[in-house]
Simulated assay, not measured.
Amino acid sequence: MASERDARRRAYLDKAAAEVDALEARGVIMGGNAFSTVLLAKGVLSEGEKSGEAPFSGADGTALKASLKALGYAPEEWEWLLTIDADGEPLAPELLAEAICALDPATLVCCDDAAASALRDAYADDLVLIDALEEAMLAPGAVARVRGMRVINLGGFSDALADPHEKQVMWARLKKIPPLGEPF
């Protein structure tokens, strides 16, 4: 019984690894825990990230991880995805949607307006079906339900870190997406 369960687990891991590898081969840049419930998306790189630092390894990543932990998410409960390729060009909407589907998050956080714009393109057919205009437009702070995910656009998280008032605005937005299951 245990070996059958182990074989199933191995098959799930192999499938996920193959999907991630195939997406990366097509130009998708992502990292973190591919099995997490939270996906952080960004479309604008910091100067450090443009110089070779890993995405979300700077102040924005530190602040987001601390915020998620304060909300009750497990410390390893996040994955990140760039909505741009290595040349800084936006991912094709179909490729972005495929990447998000492969990662299967319960909550998708757009950290900047460029990521939200890319999501609008990738999920245009779904967003037009949402009655609330703010949600359909992925307006900063609105929480939309798209293909079973909660989606929130923080609207410039990195830039907000320099302003105490804007940091509070970001914190208020993040509090709208507490963990869906048991608290950590």
Rank of each mutant, 00 (worst) to 15 (best):
W78N: 14
T83I: 04
L127N: 05
L103V: 11
R150T: 05
Y73F: 15
A92Y: 01
D85Q: 01
L82F: 06
A116W: 01
A136H: 01
I130Y: 06
A86C: 01
L138I: 03
P90M: 09
A136N: 09
A118H: 07
A102T: 12
A114S: 13
E76D: 15
Y73A: 05
E76R: 15
L127E: 02
E135C: 11
E135V: 07
A144Q: 07
L138P: 04
I152L: 10
T83F: 02
L95V: 08
A124I: 01
L91V: 06
L138M: 08
E98A: 15
A144W: 04
L82A: 02
G148W: 13
I84Q: 06
Y73K: 06
D104V: 04
E76L: 15
L91C: 06
P75T: 05
T107Y: 11
E94R: 10
A132T: 14
A142T: 07
L103S: 09
L129R: 13
I100T: 15
E89R: 14
V143Y: 10
E77L: 10
G156Y: 07
D121L: 12
G156R: 08
Y73T: 02
I84N: 03
A139C: 09
T83S: 09
A136P: 05
L96A: 06
L129H: 08
I152V: 15
A114D: 13
E77T: 11
L127G: 05
G72D: 07
A99F: 05
D121F: 05
W78C: 12
A86S: 15
E135R: 14
G148H: 13
I152W: 04
G72K: 07
V109H: 02
A122G: 00
W78P: 03
G72F: 10
W78L: 15
A122P: 02
T107D: 13
S117T: 14
D125W: 00
E134D: 15
V109M: 08
A139S: 14
T83H: 04
V151Y: 02
I152S: 03
A122M: 04
T83L: 01
L91Q: 02
A114F: 09
L119C: 15
A118Y: 05
L108C: 13
L138F: 09
A92V: 06
A132S: 13
L81S: 04
L138N: 03
A136R: 14
D121S: 12
D113I: 00
A142E: 06
W78T: 12
N153G: 03
S117V: 00
I130R: 07
I152G: 00
G156M: 08
C101M: 09
P90R: 07
L108K: 12
D126T: 10
L133A: 12
L103E: 09
A136T: 04
R145P: 02
G148V: 13
L154P: 00
A86F: 06
L119N: 03
V128D: 10
E135I: 03
A86L: 10
A99E: 01
G72H: 10
R150K: 14
A114C: 08
D104M: 09
L103Y: 08
D87K: 12
A74T: 11
W78G: 07
E98R: 09
E94M: 00
A74P: 06
